[in-house]
């Protein structure tokens, strides 16, 4: 008895995802008919070669990036909430995104200041991804070490915020010593952007995303025992330290790689897990992980479509859109449901 089935929800979500993917690809300053888009996606030639280029080299990579970023950040958020047993946890709140920013700042701005090797690395997409993941991991590790000492989750969140502030301050110092061109490059990165990724960079992104997901499949059981607290988890035979480290590494990787390629994107990591938990009404990670991944992709695609400002040639910074759309949704959900869970 009572093994709930979620097939219906997953089919609906997948359908919505495909629809949004098409909507995202069809929206932009150049109007392309939907049958042409499908033809191009299926590998047929289009009547206009410029359409072909627009779809395959601009819109499709962007839509894929949106999906990877959305689901990556959402999964990272879910992992943080379960690990810290706190609904407020998320890559941003714990300063992990700031850590990733610091990694990128050191690379982009530091290249100007220190020159040499950094300049070479900063041009490679792997370099950006690694620097940003390292930055994320360092802050996460610092939060975790202090978390081990204080244990009180409220203190942990405040400590996370403090680490975030410190990294922002370090970035400010870097900015102060950098020249205008580098600063501009960094500021634009900070607005967040889903475009501008080459297929090569998307491949790097996808490989890291895939490794993370495959590793996560092995920690679904430990994640579920964490719902009972560490002592119960341990008494169920779970090696707390090992699994916590795996979860932390995955979180840093996912946060690091998304931040490297798309800039620091707010809100998604905190909100999507909550929206998912409200929709699916479960805490089982076997259900939550795929659900969060799909819903995260859907929500970022919606944000992307909105950011295009349909029928206009402007594009809003994605970072602004995620917060503008997302925050009201979360507030509305919370006011309606009144209760929030990890």
């Amino acid at each position: 008895m009572i093994q709930k089935s979620y097939t219906k929800q997953f089919i609906t979500l997948s359908f919505v995802l495909v629809m949004l993917l098409l909507l995202s690809i069809s929206s932009g300053s150049v109007a392309i008919p939907i049958d042409e888009i499908i033809a191009i996606l299926l590998g047929n030639n289009s009547s206009k070669s410029s359409w072909y280029t627009i779809i395959l080299h601009f819109r499709l990579p962007k839509a894929i990036t949106a999906m990877l970023v959305g689901s990556g950040l959402s999964i990272a958020g879910l992992l943080m909430q379960t690990l810290f047993k706190n609904p407020l946890a998320g890559p941003f709140v714990l300063g992990i995104s700031s850590g990733a920013s610091l990694g990128v700042a050191i690379l982009i701005l530091g290249a100007g200041i220190f020159g040499g090797v950094l300049t070479v690395i900063s041009f490679s997409s792997w370099g950006l991804a690694i620097a940003s993941s390292l930055g994320a991991a360092i802050v996460l590790l610092a939060v975790l070490i202090t978390a081990h000492k204080v244990r009180n989750t409220m203190s942990i969140l405040i400590i996370g915020l403090m680490f975030g502030t410190v990294t922002s301050a370090i970035i400010s110092v870097f900015t102060f010593f950098s020249d205008a061109e580098k600063i501009q490059q960094f500021i634009f990165w900070g607005f967040g952007s889903l475009g501008n990724l080459s297929w090569n960079e998307i491949l790097v992104f996808f490989i890291i995303y895939l490794i993370s997901i495959l590793t996560l499949l092995n920690v679904i059981k430990p994640l579920n025992t964490f719902l009972l607290g560490e002592n119960y988890a341990k008494s169920l035979g779970i090696n707390i330290k090992k699994n916590r480290n795996i979860i932390l590494i995955i979180t840093s990787l996912l946060t690091g790689v998304t931040t490297a390629f798309a800039g620091p994107i707010a809100f998604i990591g905190l909100a999507v897990p909550h929206i998912t938990k409200l929709v699916f009404k479960t805490s089982d990670h076997k259900i939550l992980l795929p659900a969060v991944a799909i819903l995260g992709a859907i929500i970022l695609l919606i944000c992307d479509v909105v950011a295009q400002l349909p029928t206009s040639e402007f594009t809003l910074p994605i970072n602004a859109v995620t917060s503008l759309i997302g925050a009201p949704i979360v507030i509305w959900l919370l006011v309606r449901k009144k209760k929030i869970y990890i």
Binding site: T282, S283, I342
Partner: peptide
């Protein structure tokens, strides 16, 4: 227990 949405059945099943 941390405040999760586990049902009674799911909680017992964790055993």
């Amino acid at each position: 227990l941390p405040e999760s949405q586990l049902s009674v059945y799911e909680l017992v099943a964790l055993g």
